[in-house]
């Protein structure tokens, strides 16, 4: 399978550590990805809110580039980009009139567009568990680490568009994190919304939605929250000050990408995984729970 890679705008900017850890993980698992050339923003909710046609043409532009460059699947780590790719592709597939309009805007045909997939889906189908079994670092024993996996909105929802995992109780990330050795706890907030881009518009809404998630994670007894979307990460990692005030409880819970946790278990250096780039530094927790000299602060 020839995989194209669409980082998206966040991974080139504020969420660069997701990109760093994703690339490092693929490299160590010997999964080859090739960067999509000449890509543009997916348009998120802004483009379709201002223009119906622009909202469809913008994501599909990228799928057309992927087809031109011979990619069979387009790996998309941002679940918002992923949703807009899949939703636009489905709309033009089902509505012939709309498809002709988008073809006119893009000045090209929309035959045989490759599907976009989330890296969780890629790792599940490429058998991360088997691939990683022999490579897990003995110096990085994650068995004392308790985490909850937070999927957010678009990895599996709506099922009719995303076609991957269970929309109400997804398991793919739980399984990957478990095969990396960590304890995955059950909790009821896996697919609740974090407030997404309202972080920039109405941070009060993000604080309200995320405080529920933190309460849930604390009730479950988690040491950290594992995520698979740059927006979920930004909202959970950067708003803990305001959420602490709202919860009347000092909050300092590391939030990591699944790619960082898997990479850590495989022995990749924290720096390569971008662990030092978070607002809430996860390293003290990792050293305490998973280092070779557990509890002694020794860098393995």
């Amino acid at each position: 399978m020839k995989y194209g890679y669409y980082p998206g705008c966040s991974l080139e900017g504020i969420s660069l550590e997701y990109d760093m850890s994703m690339r490092a993980l693929f490299e160590s698992l010997e999964i080859t990805i090739e960067d999509l050339q000449d890509w543009i923003c997916c348009g998120t909710l802004a483009a379709p809110s201002l223009s119906h046609l622009l909202g469809l043409a913008t994501p599909i532009w990228n799928l057309v580039r992927a087809r031109e460059q011979g990619h069979e699947q387009l790996v998309t780590p941002c679940s918002a980009c992923l949703y807009h790719f899949k939703n636009a592709a489905k709309q033009v597939e089902e509505n012939h009139g709309l498809r002709m309009e988008v073809e006119a805007v893009l000045e090209g045909n929309l035959d045989d567009l490759p599907p976009a997939i989330h890296p969780l889906q890629l790792l599940s189908s490429e058998g991360f568990g088997e691939r990683s079994r022999d490579h897990l670092s003995p110096q990085r024993d994650l068995s004392d680490l308790k985490v909850v996996c937070y999927y957010g909105c678009h990895i599996s929802r709506p099922a009719e568009v995303m076609g991957f995992d269970d929309p109400e109780n997804p398991q793919s990330m739980d399984q990957l994190v478990r095969s990396a050795g960590a304890q995955v706890l059950d909790w009821p907030y896996k697919v609740d919304c974090c407030g997404a881009h309202f972080s920039l518009i109405r941070p009060d809404i993000v604080v309200e939605l995320c405080q529920k998630l933190f309460r849930g994670a604390l009730d479950a007894g988690a040491d950290a929250i594992i995520v698979a979307c740059p927006m979920c990460h930004a909202n959970l990692d950067t708003r803990q000050g305001a959420i602490s005030e709202r919860l009347e409880q000092e909050l300092e819970m590391p939030v990591m990408y699944f790619s960082q946790l898997l990479g850590y278990a495989l022995g990749l250096s924290p720096k390569r995984l971008g662990l030092q780039k978070h607002i809430v530094d996860p390293l003290p927790l990792m050293l305490e729970k998973c280092g070779a000299g557990k509890g002694q602060g020794v860098v393995p």
Binding site: W39, G43, A46
Partner: peptide, 27 residues
């Protein structure tokens, strides 16, 4: 909700510069 309209318009304006979003200038 006025702020949302302002944000969406600013977002697409930012896209027009480079095809991609530059997050720092957007904010």
């Amino acid at each position: 909700v006025r702020e949302v309209g302002v944000y969406y318009k600013g977002f697409v304006t930012n896209m027009r510069m480079n095809g991609k979003i530059h997050d720092a200038s957007l904010v």
